[in-house]
Amino acid sequence: MYTKRIIPCLDINKGRVVKGINFLDLVDAGDPVETAKAYNATGADELVFLDITASYEKRDIMLSTVEKVASEVFIPFTVGGGIRTIDDFTALLRAGADKVSVNTAAILNPSLITKASEMFGAQCVVAAIDAKKEKDGSYMVYINGGRDKTSWHAADWARKCEKLGAGEILLTSMDTDGTKKGFELTLTKMVSESVNIPVIASGGAGRIEDFYDVLTKGHADAALAASLFHFHELDITELKKALRDKGISVRIH
């Protein structure tokens, strides 16, 4: 039976997993390979690595991290954070990433999605979308880490990404991100129903019920969380068992 996916997100700074709230007070949380292995052991279906390194040596460190993870952990993983060019895609996929997520660069240069999709296949291209609810109730796309508002409505941009060749949408609600008060169900449902490719919901996970809601009412194909799993507030094995008991098809291993 086809299953809904649970995906932990790991923030990577200079080759180390870091934990922090809103990128402040970063604490070293260990080795990416060991963390990835631990998540695999608890039943994570995929992993997302978000590179938040802000220095010029960024790329080489991340490539070496990706290479190491790919040699020891055999579940799919996505790498994102500052992807700008086709060369970034090539280098990360060669190093062993299964998918690359692109956010700001896709808005500035939509042909990047098409080019990457043609070269490597749609399954390698994840369009990451940060969206925020406006006063009039519409959901707009933001770029540059949520600093700059674009003229795109979230559902329109998601549809456009699919047309351009993206294989999946990673949708983050800026309003719920970090709140632990639940995913943005209206946004997630709207985007998921607008496209014919899988949507990964992100932002707001706090309790088991939040996952249940976003995978049912939100129509998400997968749910992503970071701090909840990092800080051991919720164990993936327990989460999946609880979801299964509520009638959601998940992979129990």
Binding site: M1, T3, E168, I197, R251, H253
Partner: peptide
């Protein structure tokens, strides 16, 4: 139906001698 299928799904083997049947009901990507 979302196409491509991306994700984990289980297999149901028709054999009872080979390798696949040992993974009946297990999930693959």
């Amino acid at each position: 139906l979302k196409v491509p299928q991306i994700g984990w799904n289980s297999i149901d083997s028709t054999d009872n001698t080979g390798i696949l049947h040992q993974f009946n009901g297990r999930y693959f990507y």
